[in-house]
Amino acid sequence: MSAPSRTLATDILEATGINPATCYQCGKCSAGCPMASESDLRPHNVMRLVVQDRREAALSEQSIWLCLTCETCSARCPNACDPARVIDAVREMSIEAEVADMPRNVAAFHRAFLEQIRTNGRLHEMGMVMEYKLRSGDLMKDVINAPGMLSRGKLSFRAERIEGVAEIKRIFEKCGVTP
């Protein structure tokens, strides 16, 4: 027998163990999705794109970056399709394929966040905000009410840096992730 041809659905199956064909498009995921009103495509639409093997459309879809990973869809899915995990996998593929057309600020946030971890081992919020501003271009926006944070002792200028930073760098390398 010939090997089955690679489709987006088989890739998802391989990456997550989830067979996207189990989605029967009932829409329960989208009924409870807190971001549905702001997204063009809802969880069940993403499942549909995957089943239809519309790789480009799925990987370049902005809506996948609007997922909060709140897992409501997966918790209520009647057929164990786990849309949240599938969307996670589609995002990963999107980054890998470099077709990622993620909203600039969301991407900037994730990158800024990971860069902080890679260099310090822990998140330095002040540092992350600076990094985020640079990456998103949102230079003027006071994204976290920094003065208020400072006055409440919630923000520090100094980053906590762990001793095992080399181990963290190793993890990033082994996972093949460069923020």
Partner: peptide, 25 residues
């Protein structure tokens, strides 16, 4: 001692393996 960040949603949103390895440390 010497704990590190769990990666939060940025970790697993970007890479499944990274999202596992960072907390696993």
């Amino acid at each position: 001692a010497d704990w590190s960040c769990c990666g939060a949603s940025s970790g697993h949103t970007t890479d499944h393996l990274l999202g596992v390895a960072l907390p696993a440390r």
